[in-house]
């Protein structure tokens, strides 16, 4: 299977409620909460495109865009 590479994290800032599920369960500590308590990709270069943040987000606020390499 081709390895996936991150293109971008699309985060709906008005939908995110800052529960921290994505931050807590990210295996590579890519995401963090900003000063407004909204998720943002703090270390996007570490992202392995597992998309667990997208699958677990209760607010449907994250979409991880990946490309095959």
């Amino acid at each position: 299977m081709a390895k996936k590479k991150l293109k971008a994290h699309h985060i709906e800032r008005t939908w995110c409620k800052g529960c921290g599920i994505c931050v807590h369960f990210c295996p590579k500590q890519v995401l963090a909460l900003d000063e407004h308590n909204i998720a943002y990709p703090a270390a996007p270069e570490a992202c392995i495109c597992c998309r667990m943040c997208e699958y677990r987000c209760p607010d449907l606020a994250i979409e991880v865009e990946c490309q095959e390499t």
Partner: peptide, 27 residues
């Protein structure tokens, strides 16, 4: 996209931060 299946006009939804119902909706 998940957005193809939802009524976007009602978002953000009314559930509390971290509510599991959103995870079920997502899945």
């Amino acid at each position: 996209s998940v957005k193809d299946y939802i009524r976007e006009r009602f978002f953000p939804h009314m559930w509390c931060p971290g509510c599991g119902h959103g995870v079920v909706l997502n899945a």
